[in-house]
Design a protein around this nucleic acid. Structure first.
Lengths: 185, 185
DNA sequence: ATAATTCAGACGTTATATTGCACGTGTGTG
DNA sequence: CACACACGTGCAATATAACGTCTGAATTAT
């Protein structure tokens, strides 16, 4: 999300137009200069949070109405085109399919474990929950010194704020999808 | 809300400490320099929304958890100390008691009309609702060419996206409280 | 039609957000 | 004790956000 501020600009411009406000009027109301407003609207400049606060306050807007992303109705992510994060000498590969963003409180990966691979994952912060959907192979997960065996088509859900271990003890590859949810707190 | 960015700094520092992260680690995770993080935490610098985005993404946080205001448990606002906005040659006075802020979608005024005063208010944008609580005197409000008489202790609620008129036709002062709610849309 | 007004964008200047480097302060470890 | 290491902060350099002024185009008024 490099061009994130362009969204804010479009939102501001749309709202300003809806209300039939000129840049001058908006500048007067918000206390932000006309030039700056124009640059923000055109994505030429990323405002500081103080000026964003001024704009939101002057226009009587919430933050969410300003930062709300334009969601394309359809997006396709090709796994082939995603660079995996490799660990355990390439035996453990993570493909970020849906990266985290502050609006959406979760992220989605596709994970591959070669036979015999054991991966020890660091605990996440409190309130984080993992949803593991196994597609191929049999995955062993260790949480709280307890071993869980997850067969294909099965799903494991657990609070990931403690260390956990993924193991592929079978002789075929394990492919699974992992959804990680971060609580707002 | 002049020192608005200090709140964000405190929030970031609190969360970082909760997770036992150093500035170096946080810089590595978020892609924002250690120095900048330190300055933001101490309120010495107001970040742009792009760096705030980086921080929120790297730390897996929502915007709301970063911008959430610290609310003092008790606040008292003395009307004597509030500068009113005067119109109609001082016959119409507006005291802003609770100013708008982007988190809280409303604002509260205390309004005074001298006897005989008529004030024509411009329409607000769509979705705006007004709640008028009359404390003293009798207030006449005209909305949609319809006249409403509001006695003391009574409350008038109406969509304020059209022109409306306040009138004091009695011989005593009218004092009322007005809550204006701005829809998030 | 001409003048006046309003609008959006360009230019130059100032203020400040952002970075990399370096310094001082602890905190353990040999 | 000395050494290394991690942590937070200060400083100079740079990038860029923010502002005021001006210009050209479009709209409205006279």
């Amino acid at each position: 999300m490099e061009e994130f501020h362009t969204n804010i600009g479009e939102n501001i411009k749309r709202i300003r137009k809806e209300r039939n406000l000129s840049l001058d009027k908006t500048a007067e109301i918000t206390g932000v200069s006309k030039t700056m407003l124009g640059q923000i609207e055109r994505g030429k400049s990323a405002p500081t949070i103080t000026t964003l606060w001024k704009i939101a306050s002057g226009l009587r807007l919430s933050f969410s109405s300003l930062v709300s992303q334009y969601k394309p109705s359809v997006t396709i992510v090709k796994k082939k085109e995603v660079n995996p994060i490799v660990e355990n000498n390439g035996q453990y590969r993570v493909y970020p399919l849906v990266p985290y963003n502050p609006e959406q409180q979760f992220e989605i990966f596709s994970v591959t474990l070669e036979p015999g691979c054991e991966h020890i994952a660091d605990p996440h912060s409190t309130g984080v929950e993992e949803f593991i959907l196994v597609n191929e192979g049999t995955l062993e997960v260790v949480v709280n010194e307890q071993v869980y065996v997850v067969e294909p088509e099965d799903t494991l859900i657990f609070k990931a704020d403690r260390p956990h271990i993924y193991r592929n003890i079978g002789d075929r590859m394990v492919k699974c999808s992992i959804v990680i949810h971060y609580s707002s707190q």
